[in-house]
Write a protein that binds this DNA or RNA. Structure first.
Length: 236
DNA sequence: ACATTAAATTCGA
DNA sequence: TCGAATTTAATGT
């Protein structure tokens, strides 16, 4: 049985087949990715990649939610990105061949796919479509951080939360379809760089505006377009 | 920081 | 395997 025939009965292959860069590859190229990729599961709170560890793999969240963060000497954690299911990440460190500058930690129980560095670099070298997808990926990330800095300067709390939430549904970075995300207000706080109480208020403002619904341990986006608009020009 | 409530886990039948 | 009791996690003020 070849890889494509196995797709229907293997969750990892199914996941790879639905990845955004799949259609740009030849079947032979795709088969190599399938052959080389592995998955591991992590319980909530587990560390997937230590900070400063060698970047041996390109990563994807098959299921669950992870965060990319650093922990300072005083034990304070700063989160740089939340990564929901369906997303590929960690390509920066693999491309550079440098140790990971940040730790990757599971926010809730998660299944992670690992693609070896050699396979990833081989795709970059051999697939124009893949390289193009990768450029778009890096560009989307750059746009995210530029806007984040701008948001920090503007300083409106609700706007920043709206922006961070909306970005979790950015189709280039995070090609998932589900509008409900299981994340605590504590994590939203870390993600947006504010204390939980502030995140709590901001979330309820957004709920009052009819853009989201806050539930115990999760947030549901009701109006993604509205959330994006809110994130741009803040209506006060 | 503290009180409340929801959810997960344990335990006994 | 069911449900009450306990513990843990998240929310609300």
């Amino acid at each position: 049985m070849n890889v494509r025939q196995a797709t229907l009965c293997n969750p990892l292959l199914e996941f790879l087949a639905s990845s955004p860069w799949r259609e740009g590859l030849t079947d032979e190229q795709f088969d190599r990715v399938c052959a080389d990729a592995v998955t591991r599961t992590f319980v909530a709170g587990a560390t997937i990649c230590l900070r400063e560890s060698p970047s041996e793999h390109w990563l994807a969240v098959v299921d669950g939610l992870v965060k990319v963060d650093t922990v300072a000497a005083d034990g304070r954690a700063t989160t740089f990105a939340g990564v929901p299911g369906g997303a590929w990440f960690g390509e920066g460190a693999v491309l550079k061949g440098e140790p990971r500058p940040y730790a990757v930690v599971a926010i809730r129980d998660s299944t992670i796919a690992f693609v070896p560095r050699a396979t990833f670099l081989w795709l970059v070298d051999n697939s124009h479509a893949f390289s193009r997808w990768l450029i778009d990926q890096l560009n989307a990330r750059l746009a995210y951080y530029v806007a984040l800095v701008e948001g920090l300067r503007l300083g409106d709390v609700n706007t920043r939360v709206a922006y961070c939430l909306a970005e979790l549904f950015n189709p280039q970075l995070y090609p998932n379809t589900q509008l409900r995300i299981e994340i605590s207000q504590e994590e939203i706080g870390r993600l947006t760089g504010m204390v939980r109480q502030t995140a709590y208020r901001a979330l309820h403002e957004l709920e009052k505006a009819g853009l989201i619904r806050v539930q115990y341990g999760s947030i549901e986006v009701l109006d993604l377009d509205g959330l994006k608009k809110y994130a741009l020009g803040a209506p006060t």
